[in-house]
Write a protein that binds this DNA or RNA. Sequence first.
RNA 1: GGAGAGGUGGCUGAGUGGUCGAAAGCGCGGGUUUGCUAAACCCGUGACCGGGUAACUGGUCCGCAGGUUCGAAUCCUGUCCUCUCCGCCA
Length: 426
Amino acid sequence: MLDRKFIVDHADQVKENCALRGARADVDRFVLLDGKRREKQTTVEELNRSANDVAKSIGKAKDAAEREARKNEGRELRDRTAAAQSELDTIAAEMDAIQRAIPNMSHPAAPRGADDQANLEVRRGSTPLPKFDFKPRDHVELAEKLQLVDFEAGAKVAGHGFYFLKNEAVLLELALQRYAIDLLISEGFTPTITPDLARNDVLQGTGYIPRGPETQIYSIAESDLSLVATAEITLGGLLADEIIEAERLPLKLCGISHCYRTEAGAHGRATRGLYRVHQFTKVEMFAFTLPSESDAMLDYFCQLECRLFDGLGLAYRVVDTATGDLGGPAYRKYDLEAWMPGRGTAGEFGEVTSTSNCTDYQARRLAIRYRTKGEKGTQFVHTLNGTAVAISRALIAILENYQQADGSVLVPKALQPLVGKEHIAR
RNA sequence: GGAGAGGUGGCUGAGUGGUCGAAAGCGCGGGUUUGCUAAACCCGUGACCGGGUAACUGGUCCGCAGGUUCGAAUCCUGUCCUCUCCGCCA
């Protein structure tokens, strides 16, 4: 979330930004309430001061009668303080609700626009778009023919949107994980396998909303746990409530987790096959940085994603995400969209990775700060996240781009040693 | 799941109703000594919210939420977490 003082001092900018992002948040009401809050807080503080004075005076009272009189005074002050405090709490609760609904500010260079139509292509990968001398199949057809994915079994066991990976698809999943992790380790990331569940306050801290009609999150009944939608949640929560020495920054971590998404409200939107599923595996990058370093870290994350997909020999484009499509926490976001020859009528780009600079928006909620030697006080770190590989979507791109006329599929060179074969045929 | 113990500042850890925002040590900042470094010694050093140009000053915070009390780190209740032992188990 944004800093309270920042919102009040820059109300016009914040309102403009909300409009730019299509967020509904009553900023004017927030500013009004903040005035009331300060007034009420002063009242509470003065009452507390009097109560403290009375309490201290009791030890010095010269006789029982005076002691009793002062106690009565103390009792009365306690009641008045409690009443004032409860009014203050009400105001604070309403402010908190508004504050949560206000999205992060937007990078001045981020394209302006209401939705993904306004996303701006900024780069292409090194692999050219593939040419086929036959009509390319889509990944569903390929996967079923090659017995790589069993959608029917997934639906029987867990419902629509679930699937079994089988045979070489399993090897491809493991290979993709290893491929990504190897690069990230060589780049100095600390590899982790994170919990697949997290507490709801960690979800909220990272900007995910665990409950509600439109929620993307599965929650566990009779607990305050949810299934994570990405390891971004657990990696962000890793350092919640901690103060980090500035010289240890930046911290680069990567995490493998399963990702669970309800996809509520997504019916009919490109739901075929592996594109939009309730569960998949992902290797996620995460960084905690100094504020001055986060822009550069975002570019670095984007470069790593490009290296991974260039290395797989997949064509893609990079888009700079428009303000209306940034979501809540991101200040700036780049998506990699891989070419998917079987998508749409003649192939389309489909999102395969996404990397965001969340500046201090998550860190403030999660209370992740840093301290600089020789300086007083602490400041919030910046957090960044980026997909290294989302397995299900990478599989789509591999199957569709590496397909052969006979319906078999070649294994990308970089994965051959990890998969143990060059060609998937049945 | 059962039984115990515990959660205190950046860290370790003392503190069982007022004199406690909290001993001590470490760390950190400054200084003295010093060929450099190290060591030793001295002084200082929590966070957050608010008022003030500033010196300074009010309030809150001892896992979290309630309760008792004029007054709670300290007593009571609930809750979360950690550790030890037992049970169960991949």
